[in-house]
Amino acid sequence: MTMWVFGYGSLLWNPGFDVAEEVMATLPGWSRSFCMRSIHHRGSEAEPGLVLALDAAPGAACAGVALRVAPGTEDATLAYLRERELISSAYLEKMLDITLDGGRAVTAVTYVIDPDHVQYCGGLPLEEQAQIIAHAHGGRGPNRDYLFNTAQHLNALGVADPDLDWLARRVAAISV
């Protein structure tokens, strides 16, 4: 059975599994934002960073990439993703319908925020997000690197995300 994964943040530039095909895709009803406090990868419990998550938003749509998992590696990929994405259970693993460029619909493993989790922080002002991202550091490095990599890859894919672009400019200015 073909397995797809929806990438909207770090999976764009660091999937960490064998990808057989990469296709631009849209996920309706969800919005990408820095709405999750990171206490492992991009921050600590003492000084949390911020990472992207999908927040339910009726009428919204998130542009990203559908990653088709290499045949025969589905079980290993799912185990890897669960270890990576479910480290603190702030993300929920869902099978959601996405639309590939060209109109074909597929179901993809998608990680969305649990709005009832203590790490959820939706609605933070952009300036507050920038200050947190500019200073936080976690097990996978500076929080700002996560932002810069994601913004750069979205731009390279032709995906407009004005909030991420503003944050990248602001964090770069703060970090000087």
Rank of each mutant, 00 (worst) to 15 (best):
I133Q: 08
A46P: 00
D18I: 05
C35E: 10
V159A: 03
D75F: 09
R104F: 05
R84W: 14
S33D: 15
A79L: 12
V112S: 07
G122P: 02
L11M: 13
C62A: 14
L154K: 10
I98Y: 03
V171R: 00
V5T: 12
A156V: 03
D165T: 15
E74V: 15
E47I: 07
D163M: 13
T2N: 11
Y91R: 02
A66D: 08
A173G: 13
H135D: 12
Q129F: 01
G43T: 10
P125R: 00
D114C: 10
L11E: 10
V171I: 02
V65P: 04
A20W: 08
R170C: 14
S38A: 13
A56T: 07
Y120H: 15
D97I: 06
V171N: 02
A61R: 06
I133S: 08
G139A: 14
A156G: 11
E45Q: 14
L86P: 14
I98D: 01
P15W: 00
L81I: 12
L92E: 15
D114M: 05
T2I: 02
F148E: 05
I98A: 03
A105H: 08
E74K: 10
A57V: 04
L27P: 08
R140H: 14
G64W: 02
V159N: 00
E93T: 11
G43F: 04
G103D: 05
G64N: 08
N14Y: 06
N14F: 07
Y146S: 10
H40L: 12
P28V: 06
A56S: 10
P142M: 07
R37N: 07
E74C: 14
D161Q: 13
A70R: 14
I174D: 08
E83Y: 11
P58F: 05
A63M: 09
L96A: 13
V51N: 01
I174R: 01
T2M: 01
A134W: 05
Y146P: 01
I174A: 04
M95F: 07
A136R: 06
I98L: 04
L154P: 00
T2R: 09
T73V: 04
A56I: 07
D116A: 15
E93R: 12
A130D: 01
R170E: 13
A63C: 14
V65L: 15
R82T: 13
S89K: 02
N155W: 00
R170L: 05
V5N: 10
G141N: 06
T26N: 01
Q152P: 00
G122I: 04
R84F: 14
W4A: 03
V23S: 09
G158Y: 02
G103K: 03
A66W: 02
L81C: 11
L27Q: 03
G103P: 12
G102L: 03
D165L: 10
G43R: 03
A173I: 00
I174S: 05
I133L: 07
I132E: 07
A79S: 15
G49D: 02
